[in-house]
Amino acid sequence: NNDALSPAIRRLLAEHNLDASAIKGTGVGGRLTREDVEKWLAKA
């Protein structure tokens, strides 16, 4: 759900042209964290 994304995470996803639904969030309530996105980028 994009409503649950912080502005910083939205920007990070946009910079790398990523789809938030492709990344499993580990934050509160399954929210994406910066670490989630960075780990996903490291694997890609």
Rank of each mutant, 00 (worst) to 15 (best):
S21H: 08
G25H: 04
K24D: 06
N1Q: 13
N17T: 04
K43S: 12
A8Q: 10
P7M: 13
I23N: 01
K43F: 15
I23P: 01
A8V: 10
P7A: 13
L13C: 03
K43E: 12
A4R: 14
R11T: 07
N17D: 08
L32T: 03
R11P: 00
W40V: 13
L5A: 05
E35Y: 11
A8T: 10
A22H: 11
R34T: 09
R10N: 05
A44K: 09
L41N: 01
N17A: 07
A44W: 15
N1W: 04
G27L: 03
G25L: 03
K39Q: 12
L41M: 07
A20K: 05
E15N: 10
A14G: 06
A14S: 09
D19P: 07
P7N: 10
I9L: 14
V28I: 13
A4G: 14
L32M: 06
K39P: 03
K39G: 09
D19T: 09
S6G: 08
D36M: 02
A44I: 15
A44D: 08
A4W: 15
K39N: 14
T33S: 05
I9E: 02
A44R: 09
G25E: 01
L32D: 00
G30K: 03
E15P: 01
A42H: 09
H16C: 06
G27M: 03
G27D: 02
K24L: 12
V37S: 00
P7K: 10
T26L: 05
S21A: 12
I23M: 10
E38P: 00
D19Q: 09
R34K: 14
D36W: 02
A14T: 07
D3R: 11
R34S: 07
P7D: 14
N17F: 08
T26H: 04
N1T: 12
L13W: 02
P7I: 11
A44N: 14
L18K: 03
A4S: 12
R11Y: 08
A8P: 05
L13V: 03
V28Y: 09
A8H: 11
L32G: 00
A42G: 07
G29E: 06
A20Q: 06
A4T: 13
H16Q: 02
S21M: 10
E15D: 11
